[in-house]
Amino acid sequence: MNEQPVIRTQGLTRYFGAKPAVYDLNLEVPRGCVFAFLGRNGSGKTTTIRMLLGLLQPTRGEGSILGHDIRSLPPEARARIGYLTEEHQLYDWMRVKECGGFQSQFYPRWNEKIFRGVIGHFNLKPTARVKDLSRGERAGLCLGLTLAPEPELLVLDDPAMGLDPVAHRSLMESMVYLTRRSDRTIFFSSHQLADVERVADYIAILDRSVLRMCCSLETFRNSVQQVRLRFPGPPPPLPDIPGLLQAFRAEGELRLTCVHYGATTEKALRALAPAQMEMVPLSLEDAFISYLGERGEKSFILSETEAQP
């Protein structure tokens, strides 16, 4: 299993003027996983993706994709990568099937069956004009065009953006279906935690150009925990609790959200002598918001190696 990661960056940085769009990014994407790349608008996701694909030169730092330096990606490597852009760029005057015919000319390997399967899944008529398609239909068409060459690495830039619920479900189904090939890696950016919860093995979060987390979804869920302490009277003042992200104080009760919750944290909490102490399960969204909240700002970075206390 000591395989080379499909994507790896070290100190990857890109400035636009004096402003860093991506700062000192260290990313590792294992082969065969579904990797979710999260962050708010303007946090640097698309800039990162464009650098990874050799479409934008880094200001400094390094990166490799499928074993090739991102500064000098050979066409052979590009042909093994499927890239779905945010904009779904298409020629409006073409018909759906013409888009397929056109695109297929650029790839030595083109699986027409996959193309037809995907556009069928999105209920697209092969004779429809691109200019008449809805946003969801355009997304389906672009996905078909991206998948037909059977890329081993899929890079999807916010594929769920602007999709209606039906098209969105089709997208999710396609992503699950794609995992049938176990050596295929899917790297997608998203805002949708529900999607991440459904399909992602790994997550990375960019927050204002800086990487805040890069680990498996399960590691993340296990690392951010909420604990509820009950007291007979008013809760005591809080000492320094290692890994504290958020504290919520109510009558006779303290609710603390901590990262790297482990024996050290537990000992510190027991010292407060609560009448009762219990773990409260968190939803993925609550865990995210706590983790990225004010208090945790830039003070923790979760990664696979340091996640276990």
């Binding site: 189904e173 699950v176 995992t179 049938r180 399909v199």
Partner: peptide
């Protein structure tokens, strides 16, 4: 595993 994953639309893992 595969059938249930595709049915529920979740990662097979």
């Amino acid at each position: 595993v595969r059938t249930l994953a595709e049915d529920l639309v979740v990662n097979p893992n």
